[in-house]
Write a protein that binds this DNA or RNA. Structure first.
Lengths: 126, 126
DNA sequence: CGGTTAATTAACCAGGTGGTTATCTGTCAT
DNA sequence: ATGACAGATAACCACCTGGTTAATTAACCG
């Protein structure tokens, strides 16, 4: 797994890890605390591995406190992944706005439909 | 690969595929056109596979035009991936703002540094 | 029809991922 | 020091991924 961004997206491509992120969003937690809801489904070493993936991806940080490891989210890490998508999202919003205006100009009650087969809205330059 | 969101993130976890998305952002293109910059590095079937991953993830749509396949980005698809990160980003922005104010109150010229070893800024509740 | 272009499918392979159990390393409490 | 607790590491396995080459499908052009 070469670059950082790929690592981040790969780390996010797992529901268990996303659930861990959601958990950590509520506040810092030890490995055991994070593991607890998952231990019916998987072993502790599996949890450790998931956390390592998140850590290596820079989405989570771990600090030692006695024999406990306390995990925190790393907002910057997620920001970096979000930034990739954001650069597209913004521009698309514009084009969606433009499309919206166009639709309004054609027919007022078409505005909320627009999702039968044409669920793309490309060909903005046509 | 279970859920849709995982599929999307997994699809994004590859620089080749992200480059394809970037290419398609410039406008729709056929498989050959998309493949062209990559053919020094990999074969056409490899490109086909990457596009299939993007298509299955709902990030790209493909439509047939004679013997050509024309690919488009699916903004909605990327939106759905962005939404996951967005829910955290927003709230973090708030806490980063709060942190920013705190730092400003401590030392004015620390604001733009913040990336030597301490590339986290967790423990916001301390 | 026959050839060419465009792209997919098939079959295969090396290496990575997600899980397991069993073992080991620290750190605290006594 | 000893034992228990918290977690990481080791060794292994099944499956998925990203790539390959070769063969196949499908549509257009004469």
């Amino acid at each position: 797994m070469q670059d950082e961004l790929s690592q981040k997206f790969a780390a996010l491509a797992d529901p268990t890890r996303r659930a861990m992120i959601a958990r950590l969003y509520q506040g810092r937690a030890t490995v055991s605390e994070i593991a607890e809801p998952f231990l019916e489904r998987m072993s502790l070493p599996a949890v450790t591995k998931h956390l390592q993936v998140l850590e290596r991806a820079g989405l989570v940080t771990k600090t030692q406190d006695a024999q406990r490891r306390v995990c925190d989210l790393n907002p910057e890490g997620i920001q970096e992944a979000a930034a990739f998508l954001e650069q597209y999202r913004q521009a698309w919003e514009e084009s969606l706005d433009r499309l919206g205006e166009y639709l309004k100009s054609v027919s007022a009650n078409e505005a909320k439909a627009g999702r039968k087969k044409t669920h793309g809205r490309k060909k903005q330059a046509e």
